[in-house]
Design a protein around this nucleic acid. Structure first.
Lengths: 105, 105
DNA sequence: TTATATTATAGCACTGAGTGCTATGTTTGG
DNA sequence: CCAAACATAGCACTCAGTGCTATAATATAA
């Protein structure tokens, strides 16, 4: 319940911030700082963690790969530590970890 | 209104499909096919389209880059056609195009 | 059980996406 | 006007991601 409350609250706060900015109440700099602070923190994911995320969603490597728009062989390499996701891939994995596969459908 | 209805409907259908699968009513193959069909189609984005997406969200290149977990110089190169986003980057851009920056917050 | 898909691991060559840096303009706004 | 934020530019580098094929393990069906 608290989780849902938090994300809803964040959405509401963000809308409010934008309105304040449009109305000239707060300046661009503050708005920008706020945006940066709102982003979900991204940490490097270990191979086991990636596999755990996928198995929690109950999908095969190839289906998982389709969701992220990468190849299934890459997912295999992530899970075995042969390659490490970086940049946009990490972002997608973090999103799935926090919000589930549905958010990237 | 129809847009909201559709996404809600899809979520409901997906839940129903999972329940049917858990109950053994439909087999794995059908479930897998269903999942694949549900993904938002991804097409290559032209530089101008990427810039348009960002400007619609009213953010600078660096803020936009933070959302996608890439560098701001890469966003600049996308918008000028020096590099073309592929794989996971395209997925993120497509998500933002369809659902707005909030979904990748 | 035997057959048959679907999974996952493995290896390899290749390309270009993405990083990190610095420098130079351009716009904004205080 | 001045300073800060913004965008373009170039360059060197690394390794993520692709595409392919083959094999093995694991279901699913008959």
């Amino acid at each position: 319940m608290s989780k849902k409350y938090r994300s809803d609250a964040m959405a509401a706060i963000h809308e409010m911030m934008e309105d304040l900015h449009d109305g000239g109440v707060i300046d661009k700099k503050t708005m920008r700082r706020f945006d940066q602070a709102c982003l979900t923190p991204i940490r490097p994911l270990k191979p086991k963690e990636i596999k755990a995320i996928r198995e929690r969603e109950r999908v095969s490597q190839s289906v998982f790969a389709n969701y992220l728009n990468v190849t299934s062989s890459l997912v295999s390499k992530w899970e075995r530590g042969e390659k490490r996701p970086s940049g946009p891939s990490l972002k997608l994995l973090s999103l799935v970890e926090k919000n589930g596969l549905a958010v990237v459908a």
